[in-house]
């Protein structure tokens, strides 16, 4: 069997069995969505222009929160060195981890879209919007998975990780919000936001593939 698929299966299996992790990410996502509703009173006024921003900030915070822990299990049990010694290319390890993250994040985002469809009475589960969300998720997860190799200094990492990741993700946030607005028929001008989103996804995946082997080399 392809080693990358084995890694993905292993990671997904472990994620599924240890529910505390993704359940806390999911509850964090739902709670931040509700916090936005309380903070901006999202039922009173014309809320449609605000919703893409609300969704994408929630996605980014959950994504950064969840993927900063990508290699936590490997570090806790000192498996990363063994994994590097195994006859698997580091690229496969990276791709496996990134795909696992993308799959679990997409599941969470799907729940969020469903929840906001009910909460805000707006159609979120359209093909175009889901396409935007998938491209954007691939874009930011490939970057945060690369950055999550920060090392074992857990205290410094949990504080620093958002500070490192979020400025790099600003182009993605802008493009994602604008592309989602376009998908929801909001007037936002004519810039090719989906193109920028796709370029960002390709760029971050490429830099992840190229730089991850250097990041974990001993």
């Amino acid at each position: 069997m392809n080693p990358m698929l084995t890694l993905i299966r292993k990671d997904l299996q472990l994620t599924w069995r240890d529910r505390s992790n993704w359940l806390s990410a999911l509850s964090f996502a739902c709670i931040s969505l509700l916090i936005y509703s309380f903070a901006f009173d999202l039922v009173a006024t014309d809320l449609k222009p605000l919703l893409p921003g609300v969704l994408w900030t929630t996605f980014l915070f959950v994504g950064v929160f969840a993927s900063s822990q990508s290699f936590q299990r490997e570090w806790d049990s000192d498996v990363l060195d063994a994994l590097m010694l195994a006859p698997i290319s580091p690229t496969a390890i990276y791709l496996g981890k990134a795909l696992t993250n993308v799959i679990s994040l997409l599941a969470i985002e799907l729940v969020l879209l469903l929840l906001s469809t009910m909460l805000f009475d707006t159609a979120f589960l359209t093909a175009e919007l889901i396409l935007v969300v998938v491209i954007g998720t691939i874009g930011y997860i490939s970057l945060t998975t690369l950055l999550s190799t920060l090392g074992t200094r857990a205290r410094a990492r949990s504080m620093l990780f958002p500070v490192l990741a979020l400025p790099l993700l600003i182009p993605l946030l802008i493009a994602g919000v604008r592309a989602s607005s376009a998908a929801m028929d909001e007037p936002i001008g004519s810039a090719p936001w989906i193109l920028l989103l796709t370029v960002f996804a390709i760029w971050s995946t490429a830099s992840g593939l190229l730089l991850f082997p250097l990041a974990v080399k001993r």
Binding site: P167, P171, A175, V199
Partner: peptide, 13 residues
């Protein structure tokens, strides 16, 4: 990564 991000930041903003 940050340096290569500059063109993307530039276009987006």
């Amino acid at each position: 990564v940050g340096f290569l991000d500059i063109p993307l930041i530039h276009f987006s903003v």
